[in-house]
Design a protein around this nucleic acid. Structure first.
Lengths: 187, 187
DNA sequence: TACGGTGATGGCACCAAGTGACATACCGTC
DNA sequence: GACGGTATGTCACTTGGTGCCATCACCGTA
């Protein structure tokens, strides 16, 4: 029996999602997750700073893809235009993960601690986007609001996307949310 | 020495804020807060569901005042117009509490757990506002986005308000944030 | 004054999250 | 086959949070 099995973080994540889906987040202990992955509680906390974080390791990839997309937007774009343009690659990335995203979203929605963590991830994302917009030369005020508005559009569209069947609908839902935000703020 | 001193929740809140400001949130234990208020850890958790909640008991009042303000908006108002109109009474309410709000905001900003709790309070607020907008007859799509946009405007304005000197500037900052959101989403 | 009922508080045992210190196993290299 | 670095395990400990029951203060009543 080898102590050194490959991809410990991946095994822990898989074990955690299985157990959370089966018996709920609160009813699952870290020791249980670790045991299922053939590891110990102490090792779990070497890979994830806390119990919730095991569900959010993917947020780094979301941030990277989105920021790259914003950076690649045409120079003449409006600030919100650049943020929304960055969601193109994001929508592609999520298309293949519709089922997983649904399972994960179900787990998160069922627990308030996990919803808190999701919100702060989105807020950190907004802060990164804001910094990116500043580096593109937009004003500080425009950067704050465009980043917040963009994250709101993403959040609303994402919630709708996981609750319906077509995995390829994400881009359309983003455009719809954007138009709704525009019509609500117009005037 | 009477066991029954008045306003236990208020004493716990005051003790908590003092200790958090002095030595930080993490370095303060619940037992310490309770002892300072002349109570025990067990009693603390009878008044607050967890350690963070001691800083957020005021959010119920914010929600009540804001919702009442939305309900009192003229019938012909746009959804976002009604939400922003509801911020009038909110701005009045906060004006007298500028110093306290600043101390509290400093504590919250210094700790990521507390920022998480603040974000979910805002999100719950948005959900309540959304329900209120639905009851006023707006469409579901408009209600979601107007509630989100209104909370974003409040959040941005609040953050600016606690970082400057004039306690009466809240209403002006709300209007500025709203205009910035409008100009960012225009087009 | 005595009495009993009600509700708030204290005390205790307990579980789970999270951390620090140290021991131990694996892996490559020489 | 010895060696050093890195990942893992073990153990002890603190703290947040909860269930259970005892205890105390208050209040009405006789």
């Amino acid at each position: 029996m080898s102590r050194w099995q490959p991809d410990p973080a991946g095994r822990l994540t898989k074990a955690a999602i299985t157990l959370f889906a089966e018996q709920g987040y609160e009813a699952t202990t870290v020791a249980e997750i670790a045991a299922r992955a053939g590891l110990t509680k102490r090792t779990f906390f070497r890979y994830f700073s806390d119990k919730r974080e095991v569900l959010f390791s993917g947020s780094a990839e979301l941030e990277r893809v989105w920021l790259d997309g914003v950076a690649a937007a045409p120079a003449g774009a409006t600030p919100l235009g650049a943020v929304i343009a960055g969601l193109g690659p994001v929508a592609e990335m999520f298309t293949e993960r519709h089922h997983f995203a649904g399972v994960r979203a179900g787990i998160i929605q069922a627990n308030s601690e996990l919803r808190e963590r999701e919100l702060i991830k989105l807020q950190n994302l907004a802060a990164s986007i804001e910094a990116m917009l500043l580096s593109r030369g937009y004003s500080a005020n425009a950067a704050v609001l465009a980043a917040q508005a963009g994250v709101t559009v993403f959040h609303v569209a994402f919630a709708r996307w996981v609750h319906q069947d077509d995995p390829t609908a994400f881009r359309r839902l983003i455009n719809e949310s954007l138009q709704e935000l525009r019509s609500v703020t117009a005037g």
